[in-house]
Design a binder for these strands. Structure first.
Length: 185
DNA sequence: AGCGGGATTTTCT
DNA sequence: GAAAATCCCGCTT
């Protein structure tokens, strides 16, 4: 059942409720004629009322996508060499997004490992910049509509759901006690 | 296995 | 000019 009009309405909610719903969803990437698929297993929530968020101080050129419609991809560049990707959540003008921190490979693991310069297994995609490198995501996909090729978000099948833990987020200096990192137990 | 530091450039003050 | 939603290497236990 492949279509080009996936319903992503489940992204239209408050970010800390939507974020855990993204666990178990699938990212499907078409890259150089290959199909790469991975299941989302770790995420973090960010929104405009949150001092740790890029959107905290309002809309800028960089964060414009975060203030756009839900279901689009927000890609940012950091530490001079890494891309990280987020799924925009909440709706027009909200300024919220969910960082994809880790995925488990489902298809095209060999290609993902090659994209990661041979680092596979446990190290394949257990970090936000590693996810982007494995899936070949960079600035060119900033603002991309995730209902469309070459990068789709596929809602989680009911049987993919598992128990979820919430913890503090990684690598931030503000709002360190907010439990907005979600992962499977 | 765990820790410390360097890489490297965009973004905002 | 400083910090950054990170990663990897090399050195020490």
């Amino acid at each position: 059942m492949i279509n080009n009009d996936t319903n992503l309405d489940f992204l239209n909610g408050v970010v800390d409720e939507v974020a855990p719903r993204l666990l178990g969803c699938i990212l499907e990437r078409e890259l150089d004629g290959r199909l790469l698929r991975g299941r989302i297993i770790e995420v973090e929530a960010y929104d405009q009322s949150d001092a740790a968020s890029h959107s905290y101080k309002g809309k800028t050129e960089r964060t414009a996508v975060m203030f756009g419609p839900a279901g689009h991809l927000y890609v940012y560049f950091t530490y001079g060499m890494h891309y990280c990707c987020n799924i925009v959540v909440g709706g027009e003008g909200i300024g919220a997004a969910v960082l994809i921190r880790a995925i488990d490979p489902l298809d095209g693991e060999d290609s993902m490992t090659a994209n990661r310069n041979g680092r596979g297994g446990k190290e394949l995609a257990n970090g936000p910049a590693k996810v982007c490198q494995a899936l070949g995501i960079d600035k060119r996909l900033n603002g991309h509509d995730l209902r469309k090729s070459p990068l789709r978000l596929i809602p989680a099948a009911p049987e993919a759901k598992r128990r979820i833990t919430a913890t503090p987020r990684i690598g931030i200096s503000q709002a360190k006690d907010t439990l907005w990192r979600f992962l499977y137990e």
